[in-house]
Computed example of a mutant assay.
Amino acid sequence: MQPTPTANHVGLWSKVLAEMELSISGANFKTWFKDTYIDKQEDGTVYLAVPNPFVKTWLLDKFHKTILRSLRNFDENIRAIEYFVTKDDNKKKAEQAPQKQVAPTKELPLADFYINKDDNLNPRYTFENLVVGSFNELAYAASQAIIKKPGIVYNPLLIYGDTGRGKTHLIQAVGNHIKATNKNKKVFYLTSEKFALDYISSVHDPQKINSFKEKYRKYDVLIMDDIQFLAGKEKSQEELFHLFNNLYDNNKQIIFSSDKHPNYIPNLENRLRSRFAAGMIVDIAAPDQESRAAIVRAKTIHHNLNLSPEIIDYIATSVDSNIRELEGTMNSIICQAELRAKDLNISDIKNIIKGSAKPKKAVSVLDVVKIVAGFYNIEEDSLCKNCLL
């Protein structure tokens, strides 16, 4: 039976946690500092209890100096930190696991996974399960500013980046947070394709077109995904322009996402580009190896999956295309671990990745020529007159 932390230990660690919460993102704070506490303090050493080996490794590698500095701010006698995994927590989880499997009458929280038809928001997209790293920290910071003052700062906000980088997760997290903290604000999420289809279905009926115009103007926060699909749709762009002006003039928050910067979306009206530029345009880059490793660790913690640090680094290095593919690979690994009812080794992981990850495609010279010619709208032959392919 582990000793109960004293009131002094609880108070000291509460002060440290308060400082840490101010210095890092809320998602990272909850991922790495939840269920941690000071177990004891002896001879200038603080013994910090953590829930699992992954948190121990991450705190030691990424936050050790910051934690030690914060501890010393409150107690100059502290010289070192020892991290250890709490065995009681692991035992408790093991004892509880069979009970979850044999409870057929227990009702699952299915409501937590249904998309609300009133606002189209997916409840799974929250800031709590969003991993923040160097690849998305600017977009995350902008979203945090918005949830504090919706419609006032960074309006509109446009987040762009290649597919699978977490744009939809982030913009819906904004909607879910505002919905939860501002009950009087109406939030609505849709794709640009749905917007265009709604317009097309109403254009031939005067009553429907008026209903269409009013439908989206009643919301306090409008979130539109994948605006690149409006390229070339002149009438839909015109309706979006008028809707934008109405919402903006009434201090309603507008959030967009796109797979590229609006300046590089072909056949997009300049007046829309200028409206986007009036707010905040920020990109989400490809996640680096460290951020991918953090995503993998967060998944293992959430599903109570035991993977060694070497395996986590291997996954993060091998699946480097985008977050969506990384999460798909992790889902396969989690499924295999549950089916086999045992910890997976590096050989198992390699076979799973080989079977689930998309093979990397080599880029040929002809591919480069085709892309360059298409970008500059010139003939491919004009690039190859004096070269051998």
Rank of each mutant, 00 (worst) to 15 (best):
Q96M: 15
A277K: 05
A141Q: 11
E238D: 15
I378V: 15
V174L: 07
Y154D: 12
Q336V: 12
F54V: 14
Q172C: 02
T86Y: 07
D381T: 15
I78G: 09
T86V: 15
L197H: 09
F256D: 01
K65G: 11
T163D: 04
A285S: 06
W32I: 13
D226G: 05
Y199H: 12
Y314F: 13
R124A: 03
S14M: 10
I254F: 01
E19R: 11
H204P: 00
E325Y: 02
M224W: 01
R217W: 04
I311C: 04
N52Q: 08
V46M: 10
A7I: 08
A373F: 05
Y314M: 14
N184P: 04
I254G: 09
K56R: 11
K361M: 04
L138F: 12
D119H: 03
I349E: 10
K91W: 00
K149S: 12
I371N: 04
H302G: 01
E234A: 09
S70V: 02
D259L: 09
V174F: 08
E239C: 10
F244T: 01
Y83C: 01
V131S: 02
T126V: 11
V369R: 08
K215G: 02
K34G: 02
A142H: 02
G151N: 09
T45H: 08
N250D: 06
F188Q: 05
H177R: 14
I178Q: 05
R165P: 00
S192E: 07
G355I: 07
A231M: 13
T163V: 13
N246Y: 08
V174C: 05
V10E: 14
D112E: 14
K167N: 09
E21W: 00
A316P: 06
L339Q: 13
T181Q: 14
S308P: 12
D283P: 08
G279M: 11
F29P: 05
Y83W: 06
N270E: 14
K350H: 03
V132Y: 07
K361D: 00
A139W: 05
D288G: 08
E107M: 12
L59F: 02
N8S: 12
M280G: 08
I352F: 12
N210A: 10
I301R: 14
P309S: 00
L230A: 08
L60R: 12
K235D: 03
L268K: 06
S25F: 11
P123F: 07
K87F: 06
D220P: 01
Y189A: 01
Q237S: 06
V372A: 11
S14E: 09
Y83H: 00
Q96E: 11
A7V: 08
